[in-house]
Design a binder for these strands. Sequence first.
DNA 1: TTCATTTCTTCACCTAGGTTAAGATTCCGG
DNA 2: CCGGAATCTTAACCTAGGTGAAGAAATGAA
Lengths: 195, 195
Amino acid sequence: MSQLLFDNIQRTVGYDVPLSELEPFRNLFFEKSMDKKTVLAEEGKRCKYIWFLEQGSTCAYYANESGDKTAVQFSIEGHWISDMYSFFSDREALFYIETLEPTDVLFLSRTHFEEACRTIPFVERFFRILTQNALAAQLYRIAKTNSESAEQRYLDFAGRYPHFMSRIPQYLIASYLGIAPQSLSRIRNKLATQR
Amino acid sequence: MSQLLFDNIQRTVGYDVPLSELEPFRNLFFEKSMDKKTVLAEEGKRCKYIWFLEQGSTCAYYANESGDKTAVQFSIEGHWISDMYSFFSDREALFYIETLEPTDVLFLSRTHFEEACRTIPFVERFFRILTQNALAAQLYRIAKTNSESAEQRYLDFAGRYPHFMSRIPQYLIASYLGIAPQSLSRIRNKLATQR
DNA sequence: TTCATTTCTTCACCTAGGTTAAGATTCCGG
DNA sequence: CCGGAATCTTAACCTAGGTGAAGAAATGAA
C-alpha cells in the first residue's frame, strides 16, 4: 500500500484504521501512469472515478464556447480529485480534469466506491470528512474571492500555494484568479517594479 | 417528528430509514423560534450547531471592516444550515448566519452530531450526502459565477430561485451576485425598459 | 397616521481590469 | 541544434461596474 495513501487515510479519519480494513480498500483501486495533458474527466459526461494522485499534478477547469479554460482547482500528489458534483450525484460533469505533468494516479470507480461504503467501516467516515474538507475549502475560497482585488487575490494565492507557482502555467493561474493573463502580467510587473 | 425533516432524511439517504433510527436522532435536537435578524453564527467564533430550518429564512454572509455584508448563501424552510467550515472542522467560522424573517429552527449540537454519527447507522451516510450536495452546489456556483456578466448572473439567480426574490432584500442579492446595489438597480432598470 | 429608518433608484463621474495586437521568451519534438 | 508552438509581456484603448451623493419609496414602531 502506498505510504502517501496510507498517511492520507490515517490523517483524515483521525484514528488508526486496521490493516484488515485498509487492505480490501486498497484492492478496489487500480493504478495508471499518464502523460502530461491526459484528460481524466470531461464536462458533460458522467465522471465514473475518483482519483488519488500519487505523483504529478492536475487542473480542473471548464471551457466556454470559444474554448478558453477557466481553472477551478489545482491538485498535486497526495490530493483526491474528481468532478465530485458528477461522481457523487451521478449527474453530468461540470468540469474537465487534465494532467499538467506526467502523473501517477490511483483509480476508484463509483461502483467500488459504493461497495466500499457499504462493506468497509472506515470508508463512509473517510469520504464524509473528505467532502467536508473540500466544501470548507470552497466556502473559504468564495469568501475570500469576492471581497478582494485581483492583486490581493494573486498575493494570497502565491502565499498560500507557493509550490503551485512553479508547476502551473501562469495563464491558468490567471483564470483561477478570475482575470485575463495580460492583467496578471501587469500585476506581476507592477509588484516587481514597486519593490 | 416534523414531516419536513422526515422527508428530507428519506430523500437524502435514498432508502426507508426505520423509525428505530429516526426517533433517537430526532431526540438529539431542540427546537427554537427566533425573531427576524437573530444571529445564529458569528464570524471568528466556533459554530457549535448545525440547524434545520422548519420555517422562515436565513442568510449567511461575511462582513468587511466597514461593516457591509456580502451574502454567500440564502436558505429557507427544509434547508440545513451551518458554517460548515467551522462546524465540521472545529475552526473559527468564516461567516455570520442571520435570520431574515421570524424563523423556527431545529438545533443539533456538534457533540450530538458526533454521537449520532457513531451510534445511529443512517447518520454517517446522511451527512456524507448532505455535504456532497453542498459541495456540488458550491462548485456549480463557482463555475457559473466567474464566467458570466453581472446581468447574466442576475437572470440566472432570478430564474433558479424565484421564491427567494420576494423574501430577500435586494441589496443582499446584489452582494451575493458580487455587485453593488446601485448596479443591480441599473441592471433591473435596463431589463425592465428594454422589454 | 406619522415620523424615522431601511431599502431602492437615479445620475455623474471614475477606475480596475478587459481587449486587441504585437513582439519577446520559453519549451519541445525531430 | 533548429523551427514551430506555447506562453508571457507590453502598450494603447475601452467598458462594465464601482463610488458618492441625493432623493423617492417602502416599511414599521409608537
